[in-house]
Design a protein around this nucleic acid. Structure first.
Lengths: 234, 234
DNA sequence: TAGATTGTTAATCGATTAACAATC
DNA sequence: TAGATTGTTAATCGATTAACAATC
């Protein structure tokens, strides 16, 4: 009994020691990546007037394994009812809370080009817990204007402003050639997490969280699968 | 010996039977997703004047396991030299060939908004084997213009034109509300693979290849990791 | 040659899937 | 109640990592 790997966690719980960080870490990344998919599916389902939903149904619609769906949802702390399933409203809230998408985080976006503007205008971006509070660009024609109520400022002001405003999230939509430099300025401004859309691997201190949203990765899967399927029917 | 699972493949090779489709399927998706990362890294490395590179070095720079890098690269058919490594030019070519990025495929893009235009202007998009040959939109003000030499046409012409031009790839950058309808029109036009940027799960025939490039997934990982790291220092 | 690297086989690790008791 | 669903433990599967002979 005392040799159970969960024993110390149990003890910590009994004595109300904060083990949140420990628990937070435990979700596998594939599960984490599926949560937004469930979220969007559930929001659709809610609009049809449903109030309860089972993992059996979710799994069928999303072509997943029902046990997998149950495990994924369990990470958010939701508890279902045998024979009935889960209350959709509570489930949606549970996922959003888990992702911290109910607390808006301010973010800076560098690169006021088409992609940057697309992200800024992304339908209800705030749904994803992010609020872009300033754009940064080097193009004099863009600077000091406002886009959708968000000011466009020169890049050299980014670091000091980030520090002053305690910004933790930076989004990079500049060309690959200036991505590294922009990233370093973000880090200098105290930014802790960077969402990088530039097709360029950033070299940054290990503690900085970098999520690469590279189109190339996605395209590789697509073109490869297509080549496969065309070969198959040859 | 004869019970080896590779025996029948061996036989097929000896008799020159086409087993390409079989071989193509074998790469694990995580490996496939890493190939574009290597590609971009190698292109950078080439610019510094290097001609040979080892997986030891690649792994260190990209924070991966060297054996993993070797296995990934081996899927493309490349052969290295002990003690030396791989010729960078040949390696780049090998990956591009494997991804079929040396053969440009024509593609249609539906949704001439900011995101659509960002994709269209994406630096050297043709580097990724895709050539967008027409944009489609419902907004009368956009229709019949040209953007960067690519015509903008009304959505209702998409299906028949796709059929006539034998287009296999469709890109969706329309709002979530019209994504399903646009996708169905693409399928009606004979399109086999869809790159979907709309935050909406598409319900399509099983044989259609759908790659969801959803921002939400990427953001979930980012915001979660950030929440973790902030909790840790509490 | 000695040291470094490749390519491959075996061991490990972690995610997915299966089995099943508990439950409404 | 009977049937369906949850939640959990065990088995399976597949990707990653370790070990090591072959090689330049």
């Amino acid at each position: 009994m005392t040799s159970s790997p969960h024993f110390h966690i149990l003890i910590e719980k009994i004595f109300s020691i904060n083990v949140t960080a420990e628990e937070l870490k435990s979700i596998p990344e594939p599960s984490l990546r599926r949560l937004p998919v469930y979220l969007q599916y559930l929001q659709n389902a809610r609009e049809t007037g449903k109030t309860e939903i089972s993992t059996t149904l979710i799994a069928r619609d999303l072509r997943l394994d029902p046990t997998q769906v149950r495990k994924d949802l369990a990470y958010t702390g939701i508890i279902g009812k045998p024979k009935i399933g889960y209350n959709i409203d509570i489930l949606i809230n549970s996922i959003e809370d888990y992702l911290n998408w109910n607390n808006l985080s301010d973010a800076f976006l560098a690169g006021a080009g088409n992609l940057g503007l697309a992200l800024l205008g992304f339908e209800q971006f705030t749904k994803y817990g992010i609020k872009i509070v300033a754009l940064f660009d080097n193009d004099g024609r863009k600077i000091d204007r406002e886009v959708k109520g968000v000011p466009v400022l020169p890049v050299e002001k980014m670091a000091s402003l980030a520090k002053r405003m305690h910004i933790h999230i930076g989004i990079i939509t500049v060309p690959a050639s200036s991505a590294q430099s922009v990233a370093e300025q973000m880090v200098a401004g105290g930014i802790k997490a960077i969402w990088n859309f530039a097709p360029k691997m950033l070299k940054l201190p290990e503690e900085i969280i970098v999520e690469n949203a590279q189109f190339a990765t996605s395209l590789a899967v697509l073109t490869r699968k297509l080549a496969e399927s065309l070969k198959m029917v040859e």
